[in-house]
């Protein structure tokens, strides 16, 4: 009677020992900060000898009245709404192309994947050169056609769009790799079976390839959503959120609030908004798409 319970106990201890490192890391760097953030959002910012005191929903009231917050939120939503579908769609197109019989296929794959390998800071600097008014690459090409100079990053109407282009360029190649892997796991006999039935390439894509890629699409789009709120390095390098917050994104605004203005309580409040937004999006994606995803 004692032996089984002993082995059971030992297994239990082993199990927890194995889990501990991951648990410690997860608690220390993910769960604890998240809970602290929510907690802090109900307090005032401690300054000098003044301790933080409980202020209830005051920070949230400030948030609702903050025009910059609304602009940054709208920027972020636009940024997500454009970069996610475009980069995922582009990734799928590139993967389909690169998967086909193509001379120099290896080179094209490498070329598409290269932006992923580069650090975003470096990418942003390269694009700074492209965007430079007057002698940047884009204006030089425009100049060849007799078109006027454009200040891509300095114009409030163009800044956000210019930042989006960089993000898409950076992300599409990364997502392409996932699509490419998924495409190559589709047995070639399926295409042959469809060819015998007389299915056109488009029919085969619509009825077979695309549904079989759904798990990848789900994975890639969850990543794209997270990245669209997480990656702001290029904003630092290229525009610093300007001009007039035109290209500022939520995370960038949080950084500015927390580490430039040292308003940590308000930054916590903003972070809570970001967390809620991300959780809602991720849950929505899983519940909406899960029904239409076929896992093999």
């Amino acid at each position: 009677m004692t032996r089984p319970s002993l082995t059971l106990r030992r297994e239990w201890v082993h199990g927890w020992l194995l889990l501990t490192p991951a648990l410690v890391l997860l608690f220390a760097f993910t769960h604890l900060p998240a809970v602290t953030t929510i907690w802090d959002s109900f307090f005032s910012t401690p300054r000098g000898r003044r301790e933080a005191k409980f202020v209830g929903l005051r920070n949230y009231e400030t948030l609702l009245a903050d025009d910059t917050f609304w602009q940054v939120l709208s920027n972020s939503l636009w940024y997500a709404a454009v970069t996610i579908p475009v980069s995922v769609g582009l990734a799928l197109l590139m993967a389909l192309w690169v998967d086909g019989r193509l001379s120099g296929r290896g080179f094209v794959r490498l070329a598409y994947f290269a932006p992923t390998v580069l650090p975003l800071i470096a990418v942003a600097n390269i694009w700074m050169f492209f965007y430079t008014p007057g002698f940047g690459l884009i204006d030089q090409i425009r100049g060849a056609f007799g078109l006027p100079e454009v200040n891509w990053l300095g114009n409030p109407d163009l800044a956000l769009g210019s930042v989006m282009v960089v993000a898409i360029w950076k992300e599409a190649g990364f997502f392409m790799i996932f699509y490419l892997a998924a495409l190559q796991s589709i047995p070639p006999q399926l295409r042959e079976a469809a060819a015998i039935e007389g299915a056109s390439r488009w029919t085969f894509f619509r009825r077979v390839t695309f549904p079989l890629l759904m798990p990848t699409t789900l994975f890639v789009s969850v990543n794209a959503v997270i990245n669209s709120f997480r990656m702001v390095d290029h904003v630092f390098v290229m525009t610093e959120g300007g001009p007039d917050n035109a290209s500022s994104l939520l995370l960038f605004y949080i950084y500015e609030t927390a580490f430039k203005y040292w308003d940590t309580a308000y930054a916590s409040t903003l972070t809570v908004v970001l967390l809620v937004l991300l959780s809602a999006l991720a849950l929505g994606q899983f519940f909406l798409l899960d029904k239409r995803v076929h896992y093999r």
């Binding site: 006999q189 399926l190 042959e192 079976a193 015998i196 079989l212």
Partner: peptide, 12 residues
Amino acid sequence: SMVFQSYALFPH
């Protein structure tokens, strides 16, 4: 019409 060794059924 053709029957494949792997059957080539559409899994989804």
